[in-house]
Amino acid sequence: MEIKYIVIDDEPPAHHVITTYAQRFPAMQLLQTFDDGIAAADWLRHSQPDVIFLDINMPDISGLELAHAIGKGPMIIFTTAYKQYAFEGFELNAVDYLLKPVSQERFERAMEKVFSLMQQQPAEKETDHIVVHSSYQVLKINTHRIKYIESLKDYLRIHLHDAPPVMTLMTMKKMMTCLPADKFSRIHRSFIVAVREIRSISNRRVKMNCGMILPVGDSYIQFMKEWKQP
């Protein structure tokens, strides 16, 4: 999975900063850089990136005016040296607002928002895979590889058959919307299991084929009854 982006800024050094930071994310693919908003607007009539890093204070057309013209579609991250534009930037539903000079840490926080928003897009109900953001990457994981999923505060740990666990920033509720409902069940506030991986259920304990024993929460007792039905 690739996240295609462009940079629009009349200062060439700003292009270098953004593209250098973006190289740490294997999923990020640079399509184009522009040093004037008019040329960028012409290009955007025929192409649509996933993300636009957009300077606000440009000589030909301001980034705010360009964002108005672009409308809905690409996610916009404003980059500027002027704090006074922040409110109007967020009024345009920008994903983030980066003040120059942009630090690596601040850039990464903006990208976390991008990946989170992409994960919130409606999931395909009959999919055989999930897409998650982990360690600067966007990973596609086949659901047949998943044994169970564990909640750790704001993160999920996805336990796999053929690889080390994958950590991702996502809620259990969101994860359940991404998984096939007939193949995965939530058995506890902290656990989702692949139904095919269950060996047995006894005394509100689920024994997995891998040997793990997981608890069944009070709110999920019905799952035990349904699983035991022929």
Rank of each mutant, 00 (worst) to 15 (best):
Q23N: 14
Q23M: 11
Q23P: 12
R24Y: 12
F25Y: 10
P26D: 13
A27V: 13
A27D: 13
M28R: 03
Q29R: 14
Q29V: 13
T33P: 03
T33Y: 08
F34H: 05
F34G: 06
D35K: 05
D36F: 02
D36Q: 12
D36I: 02
A40C: 04
A40T: 09
A40R: 02
A40L: 09
A41I: 12
A41K: 06
D42E: 09
D42V: 09
W43R: 03
L44S: 09
H46P: 06
H46D: 14
Q48V: 14
P49W: 00
V51W: 00
V51T: 11
I52N: 03
F53N: 07
F53M: 00
D55P: 08
D55N: 02
N57V: 15
P59E: 08
P59M: 02
D60Q: 01
I61C: 10
I61K: 10
I61S: 07
S62R: 07
S62W: 04
G63D: 00
L64Y: 08
E65A: 15
L66H: 04
L66D: 04
H68D: 12
A69E: 15
G71N: 06
G71F: 08
K72A: 11
G73C: 00
P74A: 12
P74H: 00
I76Y: 00
I76K: 02
I76E: 07
A81S: 12
A81Q: 02
K83T: 05
Y85L: 10
Y85N: 10
A86T: 14
F90H: 06
E91T: 15
N93Y: 14
N93V: 11
A94Q: 00
A94T: 12
V95E: 01
V95W: 04
L98A: 06
L98Q: 04
K100I: 03
K100P: 02
K100V: 01
K100T: 00
P101T: 06
P101Y: 01
V102E: 10
S103I: 00
S103L: 01
R106Y: 04
F107N: 01
F107D: 03
E108D: 10
E108W: 09
E108Q: 11
M111H: 01
M111R: 01
E112H: 10
K113F: 05
K113D: 09
F115K: 10
F115R: 05
L117A: 03
L117R: 03
M118P: 10
M118D: 06
Q119S: 14
Q120W: 07
E124C: 06
E124Q: 15
K125R: 10
E126Y: 11
E126I: 11
T127L: 10
T127P: 05
T127E: 06
D128I: 14
I130Y: 08
V131D: 08
V132D: 02
V132S: 01
V132Y: 00
H133K: 13
S134E: 08
Y136K: 13
Q137E: 11
L139C: 13
K140C: 01
I141Q: 13
I141S: 11
I141D: 05
T143G: 15
H144I: 11
K147W: 04
K147N: 13
Y148L: 09
Y148E: 09
I149V: 15
I149Y: 04
E150K: 12
E150Y: 10
L152A: 12
K153V: 05
K153S: 09
D154M: 11
D154L: 15
D154I: 07
L156D: 00
R157M: 09
I158Q: 03
I158F: 02
H159M: 09
H161M: 12
H161R: 08
